[in-house]
């Protein structure tokens, strides 16, 4: 059976996020932030393959190392 690229799933660790909002600035359709600036991955963290590079940018720009790939890596 032919398999497409494996979907990536990401997570924002709420214990590490301090509200820098870099992820939200880089990919507002992948992350949402509350009034305290704390971030959460939208769509339960599911990243469509065509948005994976943007998710990786968010991960690599987080000063708290709060975002990680939990599936598909």
């Amino acid at each position: 059976m032919k398999r497409g690229p494996r979907a990536v799933r990401i997570k924002v660790n709420p214990d590490l996020c301090e509200g820098h909002n870099r992820c939200f600035a880089l990919a507002p359709d992948l992350f949402e932030v509350d009034d305290y600036g704390l971030s959460r991955a939208r769509h339960d963290g599911a990243i469509p393959p065509e948005r994976e590079e943007q998710a990786r940018l968010a991960i690599d720009n987080c000063p708290e190392f709060a975002i990680s790939v939990i599936e598909g890596d």
Partner: peptide, 13 residues
Amino acid sequence: RNRHIAFGLGIHR
């Protein structure tokens, strides 16, 4: 890729 910390880090970001 610019993980700079000009605004500090942690609870006092």
